[in-house]
Amino acid sequence: MAAMTMVQAINSALDICLTRDPDVVIFGEDVGYFGGVFRCTEGLQRKHGRTRTFDTPIAEGGILAVAVGMGAYGLRPVVEIQFADYIYPATDQLISEAARLRHRSGGEFSAPITVRTPCGGGIYGGQTHSQSPEAIFTHVCGIKTVMPSNPYDAKGLLISAIEDDDPVIFFEPKRLYNGPFDGHHNRPVTSWTNHPLGEVPAEYYRVELGKASTARQGSTVTVLAYGTMVHVALAAVEESGVDAEILDLRTLVPLDLDAIVESVRKTGRCVIVHEATLTGGFGAELAALVQEHCFYSLYAPILRVAGWDTPYPHALEWSYFPGPARVADALRQVMEAS
């Protein structure tokens, strides 16, 4: 075991996959020689050769298109979209092509692609470097959607994603790359070094897709969160004194519904937290599922805490970010409602 940042954990996963499988190729904007703007592919080209980790032109639609063609050939492409905010030019190739290919060809062709992309705010990225567009893709059938919250999961989930025979979008909360972040932006930055989930085995291991983990056990409220919001929720629980159970969903599609249902039936309350905008967000799907499956166990309405339905503002990002105070408020509210 070694202490790794999320960047190092991702790099380690990519390195291992390149080593184990000659059909894995990695490409994207600035990922080759330079190693990516967030350094996730650093050293891979030097170690594995230019044809295995290389730079592409700035054309997200083209990157996804050639990945689909390579997938049809039999390769296992891992592409990086430099920011999730720039995934939109690739949506046709993702939604109409990669996600549908297996179905429309009667199972003969498939696109075993992994799309890695940094998401989320908190780095003064304004509206074009801060978005969390996961709900656009959870709405698309045929694509799996993953968002880790720590280095250990990031490595294990990424290996599973790359080895998966279906297309996977792998969202990397960029605010977590170099340390856990609980939303207290005015406090000193913490690193992954002393965090238990910053302990990452150097060797190969998998974290299965479609399985949630319990970030904190509790008895009175279930908090459903993923990515950065897992850490925000942990802080909110600490500060509110509410004994909440926090589920880190890790994979949104396929979703670990059983874990959610089990926890909410136990606690009888549910708060859903995500950084993405509220309306039509993945929280709406979660709320609907909890309502369908746990209605008779609920003591209080299900609450959602999310980014406001506005573009992510640059200077005002901390007013936008659903930080621990807002989550704590929601926790108190569901406790008071019953």
Binding site: G61, G62, A65, V66, A67, V68, G69, M70, G71, A72, Y73, G74, L75, P77, D92, Q93, S96, E97
Partner: peptide, 12 residues
């Protein structure tokens, strides 16, 4: 969509 995918196949 197939036009650019063919290029990916050829690259592979």
């Amino acid at each position: 969509t197939q036009f650019s995918q063919a290029v990916g196949w050829a690259m592979a």
